[in-house]
C-alpha cells in the first residue's frame, strides 16, 4: 500500500489501482491519515513561490553558446562533412590493404621490381584505373605525388 499512497494523492494511479486503494482506505484508518498528511505536504510544497531568472540569464547563455568553438576544421571534420571524400579515402585504404595482401608486402612504400612485374598480371590494376577515374576523387585536393610511387602511400597523406 505504501508505494500507492503517493500515487493516490497525486492522482497518477490507474483507475483500477485507484479503486483498490479507495477500498483499502475505507477500512484502514492509518492509511487514511497518511493520505491526508501526504496531501497536506503536497499542499505545503505548492506554497513555495517561483523565482524568475535574472535579467542577464539569456545574455549569458547566448555568450556561452557563441563562445563555443565552431565545428573543427581538421581533416577528420572535413571528412565528416564530405561523405564522398570519406568514401574515396576508405576505397583507397582498402585498395592499399588489398594490394599489400596480394603482394605479401603489407602497404609497402616501395615495391621490388620483380614483384611489380608480377603485379602486371593482376586484375587489380584494372581496378586501379577505375579508381583513378573515380568521380569522388575529383573532390580531393590533388596529392603532390608522382606516378612512380605506390598508390599504397596515398591514404597516409590524407
Amino acid at each position: 500500500m505504501e508505494s500507492r499512497i503517493l500515487g493516490y494523492v497525486d492522482g497518477r494511479l490507474k483507475e483500477s489501482e485507484r479503486l483498490e486503494v479507495e477500498k483499502h482506505l475505507a477500512e484502514c484508518a492509518p492509511c487514511c491519515l497518511r493520505v491526508n498528511e501526504f496531501s497536506a505536504v503536497a499542499g505545503l510544497l505548492d506554497e513555495l513561490p517561483l523565482i524568475e531568472p535574472s535579467a542577464e540569464f539569456d545574455t549569458r547563455v547566448h555568450a556561452r553558446v557563441a563562445a563555443e568553438p565552431q565545428p573543427k576544421a581538421g581533416w577528420w571534420a572535413w571528412m565528416h562533412f564530405s561523405p564522398r571524400i570519406a568514401f574515396a579515402a576508405s576505397m583507397l585504404l582498402l585498395m592499399a590493404l588489398w594490394l599489400g595482401y596480394r603482394t605479401g608486402t603489407p602497404i609497402a612504400p616501395t615495391i621490388p621490381n620483380d614483384d611489380q612485374a608480377m603485379m602486371q598480371d593482376l586484375p587489380v590494376l584494372e581496378d586501379h584505373d577505375v579508381l583513378q577515374n573515380f568521380e569522388p576523387l575529383k573532390d580531393l585536393p590533388s596529392p603532390v605525388q608522382s606516378d612512380d610511387d605506390s598508390d599504397a602511400q596515398q591514404p597516409q597523406h590524407m
Binding site: 503517493l6 491526508n36 498528511e37 501526504f38 496531501s39 497536506a40 505536504v41 499542499g43 505545503l44 510544497l45
Partner: peptide, 16 residues
Amino acid sequence: YEALRVELAPLVAQRA
C-alpha cells in the same frame, strides 16, 4: 514524503 511529514508536522497538522 515521510521525512517531510515529520519535519513539517505542525504545518501538516494545521493543513490537515
